[in-house]
Design a protein around this nucleic acid. Structure first.
Length: 294
DNA sequence: TTGCCGCCTTTGTA
DNA sequence: ATACAAAGGCGGC
């Protein structure tokens, strides 16, 4: 199956989109990217204007990669100054992905105080241990485990997947999803603020994790997750929007208080506007790629 | 109500 | 080798 994008009207860069650290389960072999989405193995590649794929329907690909988002409009809206304009130009075509909320929630609970390679390792171990196996091009792939399978796993089994202190949160969150205490369908229909209040009730979910779930899987494009990289880039490049005492205090510490988090993310939401989440992902990817480390 | 401290596993890197 | 950083959260005071 193929989609012709016409990238001048509908810009898209598959590599930036899958490499920028928003998803953890895609791997590139040769020119093809392989991943498991919605319980099915998919392969996809991009050659200039053409997106070629197997294992999914066209409408699913379009929805997953948000191909209906008008990137020219979004990028022009968030390009409020020369700095962000440069970053947007550098990674032009990067799109947010519309992830499965359940997988996104567990992935970002695991992401707490871990770097991206370690997160990929944890999520792959969870999938191999608890997910169903499938084959594509003679390679084995594993579905992301269901809420039922993670809620019925033991803590020690989860610890063996290198989750550490996150194991209890993952287990408890899985139980709450499984028993219906949280419904992603309901969250999707709520406002950003209301959905965030609900997510914050889950164990292992604070402001940052909640914003990631809202942005990456619940269509709340105004969400602006602030992790260590985003904090760094905002305080360095937008310091004129904060007083010196705040800059010094927030820069010195590794983790933010909830007040400091709110101050940075609400500044960004007001400054970048309704598509602040897109700005966040471009800035995050730029800050991280400026550093050599994965 | 808010702020600040210390701790929470594990892995990789300098 | 030993220390530090990593898409933070939470309970204590």
């Amino acid at each position: 199956m193929k989609i012709t994008l016409n990238v001048t009207v509908r810009p898209f860069n598959l590599d930036y989109t899958l490499q920028c650290g928003q998803v953890f389960r895609w791997e590139k072999h040769g020119s093809w990217w392989y991943g498991v989405v919605a319980g099915k193995a998919i392969k996809i590649r991009q050659i200039r204007d053409v997106l070629e794929y197997e294992g999914a329907r066209t409408d699913f690909i379009g929805k997953y990669f948000r191909l209906d988002d008008s990137l020219p409009v979004i990028l022009s809206r968030i390009s409020k100054d020369v700095y962000v304009r440069g970053v947007v130009r550098k990674f032009h075509g990067l799109r947010l992905i519309n992830q499965d909320p359940w997988e996104c929630l567990i992935s970002y609970i695991c992401a707490t105080y871990k770097n991206i390679p370690a997160i990929e390792d944890m999520v792959n171990k969870l999938s191999k241990q608890f997910g169903s196996v499938m084959t594509l091009d003679n390679n084995r792939f594993y579905a992301f485990p269901s809420s039922n399978s993670l809620s019925s796993a033991t803590i020690s089994e989860l610890v063996q997947c290198k989750l550490g202190f996150r194991a209890k949160s993952v287990h408890e969150a899985a139980k709450q999803v499984e028993n219906g205490a949280v419904s992603f369908v309901e969250l999707g229909s709520m406002s950003y603020e209301a959905a965030k209040r609900e997510l914050l009730k889950l164990p292992g979910v604070g402001s940052k994790v909640a914003d990631c779930v809202l942005l990456f899987s619940l269509n709340k494009l105004e969400a602006f997750p602030v992790d260590v990289w985003v904090k760094r880039t905002i305080l360095n490049n937008y310091h004129e929007h904060f007083d010196d005492a705040f800059i010094r205090k927030a820069s010195a510490k590794k983790s933010l208080t909830s007040g400091e988090y709110r101050r940075i993310s609400s500044f960004a939401r007001e400054y970048f506007g309704e598509y602040a989440g897109y700005a966040q992902q471009y800035l995050f990817h730029n800050e991280r790629s400026a550093c050599q480390r994965a």
